[in-house]
Computed example of a mutant assay.
Amino acid sequence: MNSKFLGTGVALVTPFKMDLSVDHEALANIVNFNIENGTDYLVISGTTGESVTITKQEKKDIVATISEANNGRVPMVLGIGGNNTAAIIEEITITNLSHMDAILSVAPYYSKPTQEGLYQHFKAISEASPIDVILYNVPGRTSKNMEPSTTIRLANDFKNIVAVKEAGNNVAQYLRLIKDKPEDFLVISGDDDLALGVVLAGGAGVISVIGQAFPKTFSAMIRLGLEGKAQEAYDLHFKLMDVIGYIFEENNPAGIKAVFEALNLCKDTVRLPLVPASSQLKAKIARFVSDFR
Rank of each mutant, 00 (worst) to 15 (best):
F214I: 04
S3F: 14
K267H: 15
M1H: 14
I89N: 09
V10C: 04
Q115C: 13
I256A: 12
R271Q: 08
D235K: 15
S143Y: 11
I88Y: 03
F248R: 14
G72A: 04
T55E: 02
K159T: 11
K60W: 02
A28C: 00
A233L: 01
A28M: 01
P273W: 05
S111C: 15
E166M: 03
A167N: 11
M241D: 14
S67D: 05
V43S: 00
A262G: 14
L118F: 14
D235F: 10
V164W: 03
V52T: 04
M1K: 15
T8Q: 05
E50N: 04
E147N: 10
I152M: 01
M241W: 13
L240V: 07
N264F: 13
G168Q: 01
F5L: 06
R271S: 07
R287D: 12
D291T: 09
I30S: 02
F288V: 12
A28L: 00
G46L: 01
T14Y: 00
I103L: 07
A102L: 02
E250L: 15
Y109V: 14
V270D: 05
L196Y: 09
A254R: 10
S98H: 04
L154C: 07
Y246V: 12
V31C: 02
H99M: 14
A277E: 06
E249N: 12
I66A: 02
V270M: 03
S126P: 06
I92S: 03
L97K: 07
N252G: 12
F218V: 02
Y174I: 11
V162H: 04
R73G: 05
P113H: 13
G46K: 02
M100K: 09
V162T: 08
L226W: 05
S279N: 13
S278W: 09
Y110S: 15
P273C: 02
P108C: 15
N169M: 12
E127S: 05
E249Q: 15
I210K: 05
L274A: 12
L265P: 03
P130G: 05
Y136T: 09
V259P: 06
H24K: 10
A213L: 09
D61I: 01
A102G: 07
L27S: 01
I125F: 04
L20N: 08
I244E: 01
E91D: 12
S208P: 08
C266E: 11
G211T: 06
I207E: 11
Y109I: 13
Y174L: 10
L135S: 04
A69P: 00
L200W: 06
V106C: 14
N83D: 11
G197C: 13
D101R: 10
L236I: 09
E227R: 08
S219M: 03
G168I: 09
A87M: 08
V162Q: 01
G9M: 04
A69F: 01
M1N: 15
A11E: 01
N251S: 15
Q173C: 11
Y136W: 03
K59F: 01
G245R: 11
R287N: 15
N32E: 05
A254K: 10
K144D: 07
G255N: 11
M221P: 07
E91W: 09
L154Y: 02
S105V: 12
V187E: 07
K4C: 07
V289N: 00
V259Q: 03
V164K: 03
P15V: 05
V13E: 04
V275N: 09
D192A: 10
S219W: 00
Y41N: 00
N145V: 11
N252C: 14
P75K: 05
